[in-house]
Amino acid sequence: MSQDTLQDFAGVWIGKMSELVQTIIGSGPIKYIVNWSRMYALWPVHITTACCSAEFGAMMGPRLDPERFGMQAVAGGLRQCDLLIVEGTVTKKMAKRLKIVYEQMPKPRYVIAMGDCACSGGLFHDSYSIVNDVHKLFPIDVYVPGCPPRPEALLSAIVKLREKIRRQEVFA
């Protein structure tokens, strides 16, 4: 047998094995455990794009205390985070940086659009320096309207996002 055919043979088998492993992990109790761990380790990136950050701070404060859901107030680096909360207006200058931040995050990553500005441009929809369609930069999982949304509204969005994660496939 030549080396090429051996490699092909090995490649096919590795592919088959990894498929098998994926189906095992993606089904039943293991899927439940994986999703459960993802649900309880939503670490937000700290990039504030505009004034909604005041209510983000209030959500991180003592009254609601999202550490009950395993969210850490200020996680270390981007590489450990899996939740990007777009806190308000995305200007054209910020959009570039936001995209870079999103691309640096490891998968699976989730995005919450917080505030009217992130949903549709909000109060500044007719301004010359605003990106109105944040959903075209990257896919958004949950939209929270409000200007700014109450901290409870943001937390309800996180509860909704957790519901989505609970039902999702492991290898999406």
């Binding site: 949903c119 958004i140 939209y143 929270v144 309207p145 409870e152 909704k160």
Partner: peptide, 12 residues
């Protein structure tokens, strides 16, 4: 009512 979060933008 303030919990208006949705998965889809159209539902707003």
């Amino acid at each position: 009512d303030y919990e208006l979060a949705e998965y889809d933008r159209e539902l707003l």
